[in-house]
Nucleic acid binder design. Structure first.
Lengths: 210, 210
DNA sequence: TGGTGTGAACAACTTCACAGCG
DNA sequence: CGCTGTGAAGTTGTTCACACCA
């Protein structure tokens, strides 16, 4: 029976990992897997996996394990990945272009539908991947017309807050920020940050301090 | 007095954020900042900041706050960023190329010194950023000759483990993995992972479930 | 028998509240 | 007086250990 208790953020992150592993297992025609075996593959404690899953239901069979195909489907449903998500990118630099052409996203149901920039040279052209580059003025109307769910910000740090403000004003509800700066946005908009320099700093610390 | 207790991983991540903010403050000639004001800028609890800092020393002045320039310097030292770090990239695709040309890394003391790939078309050429592309066979000798500290893996998932194994064999002590797969590496090598699809999945979940 | 589901113990991290010092 | 440094309390997340069931 699905519990109505608060789900830890960390659990959500792990579901995404389980899903990827289950996808692979499905491809290899593995039909059943125990939490212990899944734990081994994911490098996560088996009790943790069982607990994560029971936040959303009882998916396993005692004495047997989990049916791979079924569990994969159930996790997809929990994460809300059955509907496609429309993405837009703000800031068409090297990183932005690389993300636009990253095949993996499409496989997972994420589609880039537009890109935005302030550079007049870029606006109006289509990118190699076929996505058009619009002026920032168009963000508001296009967000509504195209149904943009998530915006990816790959602008320089000093323009990121402005980009975020415009995205929020346009009704976007999820933002993934690659710019190395803290963004202020309303509580109801979901924000995630990928901070590459922080990751390097972290490695550097461990190389130097143990 | 610096305590000899274990420093939480989360603290290290935040130090990296404080450093970026302090850098900005220094540029604006702010001389002193209180934990409350720094907390406001970073979106982090003030007590948390004070506690993070005292793992490494007593950097503040009671009744006054922290001297920006001094604290910036001290955190750099704690993170081990005074020495430059040599980076190498394995997997010269779109994402890899974007990372190689990302200006921010150089500003923070991270220098790409080599790139590796298995594609004969790419090997031997220099990239636009001036970095040479080598065959994977060269990884072992070059890692030693060039003093590669950290390797960034941007290969497709199926080649990532092999890339990691070769990097470990070559004596590299830090790995940043962008490939969407779990890597097995010895405990003494530091591994960090940036998983873009997981970030999207996370946003998708929150859009759909609250 | 073997593996799930789960309460209880444990561990890690965060926040509070205030003593102590410049 | 104001802000740091810090023990203690509170909160969140992880692991254990075992009852329970196919």
């Amino acid at each position: 029976m699905p519990k109505t208790q608060k789900v830890p953020e960390a659990t959500i992150k792990r579901l995404s990992i389980y899903m990827r592993v289950l996808k692979d297992l499905e491809k290899k025609n593995t039909e059943v897997i125990s939490s212990a075996d899944l734990a081994e593959i994911c490098g996560i404690n088996a009790a943790q996996i069982r607990k994560d899953l029971t936040y959303f239901g009882e998916f396993g069979v005692r004495g047997v394990g989990y049916f791979v195909k079924e569990l994969h489907f159930d996790i997809r449903k929990v994460l809300g990945l059955n509907e496609k998500r429309n993405l837009a990118l703000i800031g068409v630099g090297n990183l932005g272009r690389a993300l636009l052409s990253y095949k993996n996203f499409a496989d997972h149901g994420y589609d880039f539908v537009a890109a935005f920039d302030t550079d007049k040279e870029k606006i109006g052209s289509d990118l190699p991947c076929g996505i058009p580059v619009y002026s920032m003025d168009k963000l508001d109307s296009l967000a509504k017309d195209l149904g943009i769910d998530i915006v990816i910000i790959t602008t320089p740090a000093e323009f990121a807050q402005d980009a975020a403000d415009k995205a929020v004003a346009a009704g976007v509800r999820g933002i993934l920020n690659f710019a190395p700066t803290q963004l202020n946005i309303p509580r109801e908009v979901h924000l995630k940050r990928v901070d590459l320099t922080t990751e390097f700093d972290n490695l550097a610390y461990h190389l130097h301090a143990g």
